[in-house]
Write a protein that binds this DNA or RNA. Structure first.
Length: 589
DNA sequence: CGGTTAAAACCCTGTAGGGC
DNA sequence: GCCCTACAGGGTTTTAACCG
């Protein structure tokens, strides 16, 4: 079914239009920027020159016919979705359409005419919303279709309509569904569209028939629920959609229509801590009470939780001694593999919350963790009180630290260490330093940029007559396996060996398996190829084992007899540096 | 073919509401 | 009313499978 509501009304109706631009924006500036941006973008593609002229308050942009009538038809095909979040994501219609849309609406709001010269035609966008251009749009605009969104899209910007959380008039409420629980895609309509359905009256001449609208998609696919954009909290509301309010009688109407559809709330794992009872017993045994905790930390907490956090602390201490500061995700995997907590979606965020408390209370040290994903950019300055001579001396002496001689120069191979996750970077850093190897944490799927850079590196080595080898370490799970395969595929045009060192199917003995995530779209390939029903994290291997696997692999490609003799070199280096240091010491400030 | 959803890596905050 | 969980929100980046 097609709704017989021309969506271009959204771009020509003042009230509708206003919602698309944040209030703080200067509209006239935005229109100029958009028009110029898009004209330049298009012109650049075909090497045309953009002509811009401003007369009185009329902005004219000429781009030698890039805006063809065909293109305008495409742009004005409003049966396609439009962007629902300004400044965030735009769908389908692209820059020209977006620019035009904004241009149209702004010219409407600000009474500033905009002229687009295109293909010997002139489109003037001016105050009158059914001007030449609007008429053109009206003529070519297609009716809008209802469309399907998936789970993520919904959780991103759409809330379900039912009956719990949002307070309405009287005591009625509306419930928000946890969209994660939805197994199938659902039909939804975008807020402004719903808005149009309910608020356009017959006087406007638009046909509105909610029943047929609800009926139609039901025939095609079993429908779960009709979704309407809504945010319960005005703070979190999409500012573009804040005008969309759902009156109770409308929600009731829809609810009645779908009486038989049950809406389940998301069932997270409530008892995500699997060793609760054990902790309780320990607490009793050690006589840990709320009062004791309150006395010691100034904040009370259930004894079993405290015991749980102490157990976490032990594990964290152990990890710290092996790797140094760790990430919370590393701790999470450890706890899961030890059977302390469940491996559920909510488990990780719960753990984060627990460890936040633990840190703030002082149970666990802040230094136990590190955040590798954020950084501070510091200016490099020194105090005026410092002695310039000292600074120069320090700089010279520290720059004279003996360098490392390249032990790979005469080798037959060029070796690199690639690991799937950042978490193990520290462990691998040691071995990479020791053997002078490039170390690359791909963080899941490698970026094309880094693959390309690697290829350039390898080409250089191949020119030198070397064989290139990547020693790869990753999880033994569908995605982990696939990541490895993708790397192989990307290097298929270069003679590069990719050796998967760990985790391999023959290394899983004694490891605690994790269940396969059934939702993983790569699961089929994994099952077929490896015939495994469980998966294994790289972190689950003992660090010593990982290191020895790496050492053995490196030794295979490294010939000790080919290490250059550097004794003479360093003798000379020493002589020279000593002379320089002597000179520096002689300088009088 | 392109949009959507899923996966991977990582992190943090605020609050509604159930349970005790 | 406290404690705790779940679930909203916020941020960064990638690739593959699937589907119409």
């Amino acid at each position: 079914m097609l709704l017989k509501i021309p969506v271009f009304r959204q771009f020509t109706d003042l009230e509708e239009l206003k919602r698309f631009i944040p209030p703080s924006f200067n509209r006239s500036l935005v229109v100029v920027k958009e028009i110029l941006d898009n004209a330049c973008d298009e012109a650049e593609k075909k090497d045309y020159i953009v002509e811009v002229s401003l007369k009185d308050i009329t902005l004219t942009v000429k781009n030698k016919g890039i805006f063809t009538e065909d293109q305008l038809q495409v742009i004005s095909d409003f049966s396609e979705r439009i962007t629902s979040k300004y400044l965030k994501k735009s769908y389908q219609r692209g820059a020209i359409g977006q620019g035009l849309m904004i241009a149209i609406m702004l010219s409407d709001i600000d009474n500033h005419p905009v002229i687009i010269n295109s293909n010997q035609k002139q489109f003037k966008i001016e105050q009158d919303r059914f001007s030449e251009f609007s008429k053109f749009l009206k003529k070519v605009a297609k009716p809008v279709k209802a469309f399907w969104y998936g789970k993520n899209a919904i959780s991103e910007r759409i809330e379900v309509l039912s009956y719990k959380k949002i307070s309405l008039s009287s005591n009625e409420t509306i419930e928000i569904i946890a969209s994660r629980e939805l197994k199938d895609n659902v039909l939804c309509v975008n807020g402004s569209l719903v808005h149009s359905i309910f608020y356009s009256s017959d006087e406007d001449g638009y046909v509105v028939n909610l029943t047929s609208f609800l009926n139609e998609p039901q025939k095609k696919k079993p429908i779960k629920c009709l979704f309407i954009y809504h945010s319960p909290n005005i703070r979190y509301a999409d500012k573009n959609k804040e005008r969309v309010k759902i009156p109770y009688k409308i929600s009731r109407y829809i609810k009645n229509f779908y009486k038989n559809i049950s809406i389940k709330s998301a069932a997270g794992e409530k008892d995500w801590i699997l060793i609760k009872e054990k902790c309780q017993k320990i607490a009793e045994k050690k006589n840990i009470t709320k009062e004791n905790i309150l006395k010691e930390y100034g904040k009370s907490m259930k004894p079993w939780r405290y015991v749980f956090l102490l157990l976490c602390k032990n594990i964290i201490d152990e990890l710290n001694s092996k790797y140094g500061a760790v990430t919370i995700r590393q701790v999470y995997y450890q706890l899961v593999s030890k059977g302390y907590i469940s491996n559920a979606e909510n488990s990780y965020s719960n753990l984060v919350a627990q460890l936040t408390d633990a840190r703030e209370m002082g149970i666990i040290d802040y230094f136990a963790f590190e955040d590798r994903s954020r950084y501070l950019l510091k200016p490099k300055t020194i105090s005026i009180k410092t002695n310039p001579k000292d600074i120069v001396k320090d700089a010279v002496i520290s720059s004279l630290k003996p360098p490392e001689i390249d032990i790979w120069e005469n080798q037959d191979y060029h070796l690199e260490l690639w690991i799937e996750k950042d978490a193990l970077l520290k462990l691998f850093k040691k071995i990479a330093d020791k053997h002078q190897l490039n170390l690359y944490p791909s963080r899941g799927y490698s970026s094309l940029t880094k693959i390309h850079e690697a290829k350039e590196r390898f080409k250089e080595q191949i020119r030198k007559g070397k064989e290139c080898v990547i020693l790869y370490f990753g999880d033994l799970d569908p995605s982990g396996w696939n990541i490895y395969e993708v790397i192989q595929k990307k290097f298929s045009d270069l003679p590069v060996t990719i050796e998967r060192i760990a985790v391999n199917p023959d290394q899983t003995e004694g490891l605690i398996p994790m269940p396969l995530k059934e939702k993983d779209t790569r699961i089929n390939g994994f099952l077929e190829e490896l015939k495994l029903t469980e998966c294994y994290e790289l972190d689950a291997l003992e660090p010593e084992l990982i290191l020895s696997l790496a050492e053995n692999a490196i030794d295979k490609y490294f010939d000790k007899n080919l290490i250059p003799d550097d004794s003479e070199w360093f003798k000379k280096y020493q002589e020279i540096t000593e002379k320089i240091i002597k000179l520096v010491n002689e300088i009088e400030a």
